[in-house]
């Protein structure tokens, strides 16, 4: 089962490698991992998308909690939550494909944020599935590069991850 774990961790050098090292040394899956500072400069927020049986997820959560730099761990996918991922796609935009690409971008509520006479950079935000389906909807030969941020997640309503 897929899970989205949210972590608050000390904004210290090496904290990221402690978390990623734990996953590789214990053989846990990482689908994506994002990390950035929060409004409190002493803390970072990390979102990890992982998968495993209930027992494995329980172990992952316990092992993460054991790390001295980890302040708090929540499985946001346990309850209603929102997931978003940002994607930048550079596509070839020549001739007939130029108009088609613009149309597709609009259908997916993307924004063209860079234009040259032969290419676009399209910015797209949404769930993993939405970004996947955009990539599936455009001609794959036209994709020059894809950059994805990895998933960010937050609980709905009153569920707050804070100390």
């Amino acid at each position: 089962m897929r899970h989205v774990l949210s972590l608050l961790l000390e904004n210290e050098a090496g904290a990221l490698s402690r978390v990623s090292g734990l996953f590789s040394s214990r053989g846990y899956n990482i689908e994506s991992l994002t990390v950035a500072p929060t409004e409190d400069a002493s803390m970072s927020r990390m979102t990890i998308v992982t998968s495993g049986s209930d027992e494995v997820i329980e172990q992952i959560t316990k092992q993460l909690n054991k790390l001295v730099d980890v302040v708090k761990v929540v499985d946001v996918s346990e309850a209603p939550h929102i997931e978003r991922e940002l994607m930048l796609v550079k596509v070839r935009a020549l001739g007939a494909a130029r108009e088609e690409m613009k149309r597709m971008s609009e259908i997916f509520r993307g924004r063209i944020i860079d234009v040259t006479d032969s290419s676009y950079v399209i910015e797209l935000t949404g769930t993993q599935e939405k970004l996947d389906s955009f990539l599936g909807a455009i001609e794959s030969e036209l994709i020059l590069e894809t950059v994805r941020s990895g998933v960010c997640g937050v609980g709905r309503g009153d569920r707050v991850l804070k100390i």
Partner: peptide, 11 residues
């Protein structure tokens, strides 16, 4: 004392 030792190998 270590929660991660519990139910690690044996339920």
């Amino acid at each position: 004392i270590d929660p991660s030792s519990i139910s690690k190998r044996v339920k």
